[in-house]
Measured scan of single mutants.
Amino acid sequence: HMTFVALYDYVASGETDLSFKKGERLQIVNNTEGDWWLAHSLTTGRTGYISSNYVAPSD
C-alpha cells in the first residue's frame, strides 16, 4: 500500500469519511475511484474515505 501524509486537518462530513489531522500518516487502500480515496490511518487505526487533495506522498 502507498503511504501518504495529511497536509491539512480534515473533519469527516459523513459516516464513510475519515477524519484526520495534519501530519497524520495514511495508507491508501483504494485510489481508483476518482478524487475520494479509501484510506487507513496509521495513527488512529480507522478506515474511511479521504479527499486526495488533502494528502501528499510521504516518500
Score class of each variant (00 low, 15 high):
L7K: 05
T47R: 07
H1G: 14
S13E: 12
V11N: 10
V55L: 09
H1V: 12
G48K: 01
T47W: 13
P57C: 09
A12S: 09
W37L: 08
S19W: 03
S51Y: 14
E24R: 00
V55N: 03
E24H: 03
L26N: 00
S51L: 15
G34S: 10
T44G: 02
D17R: 12
D59E: 12
T32W: 08
V5F: 06
W36A: 07
V29I: 15
G14S: 14
E15Y: 08
S13Y: 09
N31P: 10
L42D: 04
G45F: 04
V5K: 03
G48I: 02
A39R: 00
K22D: 01
G34C: 07
V29F: 10
T3L: 14
A39K: 00
T3W: 13
G34I: 06
W36M: 13
S19T: 08
N53D: 13
T16P: 05
V55A: 05
S13C: 14
L38Y: 09
T3D: 08
H40P: 00
G23V: 01
T16A: 12
G23R: 01
T16D: 12
L42R: 03
Y8G: 06
L42A: 05
Y49Q: 04
L26F: 15
E33R: 11
T32Y: 08
L7C: 10
Y8I: 13
S13L: 12
E33V: 11
R25Q: 11
F4Y: 15
S58C: 15
L26Y: 00
K22L: 05
Q27L: 15
Y8K: 07
N30C: 13
D17T: 07
A6F: 02
H1T: 12
T16M: 13
Y49D: 02
A6N: 01
E15C: 13
D35C: 11
N31C: 15
T44A: 02
T43K: 07
A56H: 07
D35R: 07
Y10K: 03
H40E: 09
G45R: 04
S52V: 09
T32K: 11
H40M: 14
V29N: 04
G45H: 09
A12I: 06
D17C: 15
W36N: 08
A12K: 04
A39V: 14
S58K: 07
T3M: 13
L18T: 03
T16Y: 14
G34W: 05
D35G: 11
V5Y: 08
N53C: 15
S58G: 10
E24N: 01
V29T: 06
E33L: 13
A6T: 13
S19N: 05
E33W: 08
H40S: 08
Q27A: 09
E24D: 11
Q27F: 14
R46G: 06
T43E: 13
N31S: 12
A6D: 01
T44S: 10
S19I: 05
S13M: 13
G14D: 09
R46K: 15
V29L: 15
A6R: 00
L26R: 00
L38N: 01
A56M: 12
E33T: 12
M2T: 11
S19K: 02
V29R: 06
S52Y: 07
S58H: 12
L38D: 08
N53G: 11
H1A: 11
G48F: 04
L18W: 03
K22M: 07
A39W: 02
Y54D: 07
T16E: 12
R46Y: 07
R46E: 09
G23K: 01
I28C: 12
S41A: 02
A6V: 13
V55K: 02
Q27V: 15
T43W: 06
D35Q: 10
S51G: 07
V11F: 10
I28T: 03
T44C: 01
M2H: 11
F20E: 00
Y54T: 06
S51W: 14
I50E: 00
S41T: 02
N53K: 15
Q27I: 15
I28F: 03
T3S: 08
S52Q: 08
I50T: 00
V29H: 15
G34R: 08
T32C: 10
E24I: 03
I50N: 00
S51R: 15
Y54E: 04
Y54F: 13
E24A: 03
F20N: 00
D9A: 03
S19L: 06
D9F: 05
S13D: 10
D59A: 15
L42I: 09
L18E: 01
P57L: 12
A6S: 05
S52M: 12
F20R: 00
S13F: 10
S58A: 14
D59I: 12
W36Q: 10
G48L: 01
S58E: 15
N31G: 14
K21Y: 06
D35S: 11
L7W: 04
A56F: 09
Y54L: 14
V11W: 09
V55P: 03
K22E: 05
S41C: 04
Y49M: 10
Y8W: 09
F20Q: 00
I50A: 00
S52N: 06
A12Q: 05
L42K: 04
E24M: 01
T3E: 13
V55T: 03
D9V: 03
T16C: 15
T44D: 03
D17L: 13
A6Q: 01
L26I: 10
I50F: 02
T47Y: 11
T43L: 10
I28H: 01
N31M: 15
G14A: 14
A56L: 11
T32G: 09
W37Q: 03
A56Q: 12
W36R: 15
L7S: 03
F4H: 06
Q27P: 00
S41M: 01
S58W: 15
R25L: 15
L18G: 01
S13K: 14
Y54S: 13
G48M: 03
M2Y: 10
L38A: 01
A39I: 05
L38Q: 03
W36C: 14
G14K: 15
T44N: 04
E24V: 01
V29A: 06
Y49P: 01
A56N: 07
G45A: 04
T47E: 07
L38M: 07
T3V: 15
L42N: 05
T43V: 12
S52K: 15
R25T: 12
L18R: 01
D9H: 03
L26V: 04
L18H: 01
T43F: 05
F4N: 00
A39Q: 00
Y54P: 02
D35I: 09
Y54V: 08
V11H: 10
P57Y: 10
V11L: 08
D9K: 00
Y8M: 11
G34T: 09
G45E: 04
G34H: 08
V11R: 06
F20G: 00
L7M: 08
G14I: 11
H40A: 07
L26K: 00
D35A: 09
F4Q: 02
Y49T: 04
W36H: 09
Y8H: 08
F4A: 05
G14Q: 13
W36F: 10
F20S: 00
N31Q: 13
K22R: 09
S19R: 03
L18P: 04
D17A: 09
V29Q: 07
S13P: 07
K21S: 10
N30P: 05
L18Y: 02
S58I: 15
R25W: 12
E15H: 10
L38R: 02
G45L: 05
G23F: 03
D35E: 13
Y8V: 11
R46N: 08
A12Y: 02
W37T: 03
V5A: 02
Y49I: 07
D59H: 13
V29P: 04
M2S: 10
Y10R: 04
L18M: 12
W37K: 03
T3Q: 11
N31D: 11
V5T: 08
W37C: 05
T44P: 00
R25C: 14
I28M: 06
E15K: 11
N31F: 15
Y49F: 11
H1K: 13
F4K: 02
I28S: 05
L18V: 05
T47H: 06
V11Y: 09
P57K: 09
G48E: 01
K21M: 09
K22A: 11
L26P: 00
T32Q: 12
G14C: 15
Y8Q: 10
M2I: 11
K21T: 09
Y49A: 03
Y54G: 06
W37N: 01
S13I: 14
R46S: 07
N31A: 13
G23S: 02
G34P: 12
S41R: 01
L7D: 03
V55Q: 03
L7V: 06
H1F: 13
G14V: 14
L42H: 05
F20P: 00
